[in-house]
Design a protein around this nucleic acid. Sequence first.
RNA 1: GCUGGUGUGGCUCAGUGGUAGAGCAGCGCAUUCGUAAUGCGCAGGCCGCCGGUUCAAAUCCGGCCACCAGCUCCA
Length: 635
Amino acid sequence: MVKVTLKDGSVREYSEGVTLAEVASSISGRLGKEALVGRLDGKLVDLTTPIKKDAAVEFYTFDSEEGRQTFRHSTSHVLAQAVQKLFPGTKLAIGPAIADGFYYDFDASEKFTPEMLGKIEAEMEAIIKADLPFERMDMERESSLEFFDRAGESYKVELINDLPVDAAISCYRQGDFTDLCAGPHVPSTGRLKSVKLTSLAGAYWRGSEKNKMLQRVYGTSFPKKSLLEEHLTRIEEAKKRDHRRLGAELELFTIQEEGPGFPFFHPKGMVLRNELEKFWKEVHRKRGYHEIRTPIILNRALWERSGHWDHYRDNMYFTKIDELDYAVKPMNCPGGILVYKSRLHSYRDLPIRMAELGLVHRHELSGALHGLMRVRCFTQDDAHIYMLPGQIKEEIMGVIDLVDYIYKVFGFKYKVELSTKPEKAMGSDEIWEMATSALEDALNTMGMEYKVNEGDGAFYGPKIDFHLEDCLGRTWQCGTIQLDLQMPELFELTYVGEDGQKHRPVMIHRTVFGSMERFIGILTEHFAGAFPVWLAPVQARVLPITGRHVEYAQKVMDRLDAEDIRVELDDRNEKVNYKIREAQGQKIPYMLVLGDREAENGAVAVRHRSAGDIGSMGLEEFIARIKDEIKTRKI
RNA sequence: GCUGGUGUGGCUCAGUGGUAGAGCAGCGCAUUCGUAAUGCGCAGGCCGCCGGUUCAAAUCCGGCCACCAGCUCCA
């Protein structure tokens, strides 16, 4: 007999060799049906695993991350089986579960087309219907190599060869299909129920553009058809929040063929942008930043000195002035450094926080452009902090706090990543080590959760990145804090210390919004275009019911205008329903419906874009209300 | 940059070799209306660009450009 301890702490006895699936069924019929995978003494395992000694056991259904991952991963095996059946000779690369589904990379002689996805799906459904059990096979390294080599699965051979010598190697088989896989899997293909292949894309083997491009098939799966449908509807809804679509509908910005990656900001987009800048300037002034502005085009020699010529040239634009070489700035730091160097600094002046809303240009790959999220010119809300080595931690913590403060004003949740030394880096390992641990130290002291991104740092130093989500859950780097031990050396920056001697300051580069463009993109999707009143391009629209109310409406509008409230008058000869419909479409926060009743007693009938009709109130009362919302930046 | 897809009035889309269409938006006229679409009428298109095939091309072929998804890269 074995003693099995369940999640709730209760202990049950079973005969030795009982499987997890049997335990689950004995707890409840429903758990037996819904459990997908289990945990045995802390290790995620198949439900078919026998329990041979006393152990702690947990079960996961589709409601848990573990359950969903296993479910999608198993579906990817079914996809691979279907593809190999339909297209014999197709080689398999990898097929993991991802956030909302799974993918599998194939090296196939025929080109997959969208029409073929339907056929593959049908084949998958047949495999699911056949309810083939997933069988685990633990293998010796040699025999696994032999097996995949004979099958012509060269990618699998490469994967096995790259596994550590002592790594356990396992395969999973369903029917006549076998794949290299650590597992675990659901018990059988019949559990997979509802499958949808969603898209087709190229993907480099092992993510390197030096390797062959494989064909990646994306899909998702659910244990019930209704869940799949819900998921697809959710994605359709999310697409309506796409900033590219809303940007056009709300007349915020456009991107034209004449300037791919170079956005045009329209009047309404500029209002939003200016409000953001106003807020940003206010907060930075309060936190001891001084604003500067540096030129967009600077001499090539500067870029050679900064290292950009060697490390960043591919992303830069160049020009000639009077036969001399110049570059369009891809970063603000070298210019900012020249401002620092223009005079002598005492240790008493440090830290010096110099901020710049700087327009930078970068040659991004054409295929990487994406609305306002990735463009070829953007305004960074940059700042460079020059400080004593002893001030590093405090300054970094100050920036982290600032980012947190500003993101909270918009109600953003964010993720933090720490990026370490890349391949193309300047400076010694020791310097990188020191800089990286300074960033880590600050994060740990502040109790921040973060993920480490090995090799993702800037060429001059490691960085802390702040990532925000778009409408489809894709994340974009916005804020960043980069500790730079290179530029101060390269530009021979100094301050005069207590001892009267010159010393080297430490420098950090940082942004909060990241780029005004990207931030506006994120903001638009986050609020689905319904910006908080303080940011809304139009804060109120006055809607006279008939022509005879226009005069009063004009008065109301003038009064609001005098209070610096952004207001429009809709005096078109249309029904009020029509005017409301349009104002709603423009996501204008307040609509003031004005008829005889309002004109008589100086009132406004207020409609809020999300709360609807909130009744009539005195004009002054409404002004007090909206002004309070603006002042407190209510979201 | 790479893989796949898409490109027709301001917007959403129909049109697969034979004289370019619809709805919405716009403009005009009528309607003067109380919380999400009043009616009638009128305009508007080098069918992304360049070249080829054909008696004839939005439609077939080639090249280029842009966009979309993903890869790579990144604020």
